[in-house]
Amino acid sequence: MAKQKRVWFITGCSSGFGRALAEAVIAHGDHLVATARRLSTIADLVAQAPHRVLTLALDVTKPDSVQVAIAAAITRFNVIDVLVNNAGYGLQGAIEEISDAEARQQFETNVFGVWNVLRAALPHLRQAGGGHILNFSSIAGQRASPGLGGYSASKFAVEGLSEALAQEVAPLGIRVTLVEPGGFRTDWAGRSMVWAAHEIKEYAATSGRLRQGLKGFHGRQAGDPARAAQALLALVELPEPPLRLPLGPDALQGIRSKLKEVERDISAQEALSLSTNFQP
């Protein structure tokens, strides 16, 4: 008996992880709904498998655009088996340097964009009685760095949203996984990065140092997006997929180091923490 092919719905397919995953899904023989803000950037995907690929223009910050795209996917393939919230970008700048508009746009895309897609897709996943949601977070969603506070705040939000969501939908047969990449050769540190327009010289040793480091880091990261895509294909085959999947040795090391730091802090002040209850 032939294995049932999955239907994937992926946001942000113009480049990076989204593009690599879209191509891997096609090569794997599954069905694909590939989306991007500009349809022209993904139009070539259809030629690779015309009967299995649907490309759609989608701006995750616009709820109406999301609703239309999800409806078109259901009309074409009847179901969404794997929903991938990948669309997003980085914002570099110290907390004081980032403007209100820059911070709000970061959250509009990285947080509310995910929320918009989830709200549109979940009714269909509930009706189908299953599905797997992959929400892209980052090592920065577990461990913040100076100069990436705005980006980390958005990814920390995705982590909290996903933890709650996983518990809400587990009884409905729907699984949720946070994908937490380290450094990969995508456009994240290149053309996709937004640099805070305002620089303050007093942050040159912290945020400023990271700004320069990221510019030199672009294109030299150890992570291969194509290999990450293969890891995600393997992930969805697991009978009990994890809530979190760090990608890359730097992500693993960073998260493990963070967990040790948290344990050290809470253990050092355990007595103070326990001193706060009402006394009998």
Rank of each mutant, 00 (worst) to 15 (best):
R244L: 05
S145T: 14
T61F: 09
A222S: 07
N135R: 09
A2K: 13
S145C: 15
A121E: 02
G93F: 03
V176N: 13
P123I: 09
L178S: 05
T206Q: 15
F156Q: 12
I95V: 13
G129H: 03
G173T: 10
R6S: 07
L245E: 07
E102C: 01
A101S: 13
G149V: 12
K62N: 11
G93P: 01
P50N: 08
R52L: 03
S137M: 11
A164L: 07
G90D: 01
W115N: 04
I255C: 11
N277S: 05
A166Y: 03
N86H: 12
S65I: 06
T41H: 01
V46S: 11
V53D: 12
N85F: 07
I10F: 03
A204T: 08
G131M: 13
G130L: 14
P63G: 06
S152A: 15
A43Y: 14
V66G: 02
L54K: 05
E23H: 06
P246W: 08
A228V: 08
A57K: 10
V53S: 10
R52A: 14
A231E: 14
T11I: 09
T75A: 14
F9K: 08
A153H: 10
V84E: 00
G173S: 08
A157C: 12
F217V: 04
A197Q: 14
A71D: 09
S162W: 00
Q167Y: 11
K155G: 06
A271Q: 00
L252T: 09
G147T: 02
F9C: 08
A22F: 10
L54R: 09
R209P: 00
L233P: 00
L45M: 14
L39V: 04
L122Y: 00
H132V: 01
K260S: 15
P225L: 10
I70T: 02
S162Q: 00
Q106S: 04
Q142A: 15
V79I: 13
L252N: 09
R220D: 02
L118S: 05
I200E: 15
V53E: 03
M1E: 09
A24Q: 01
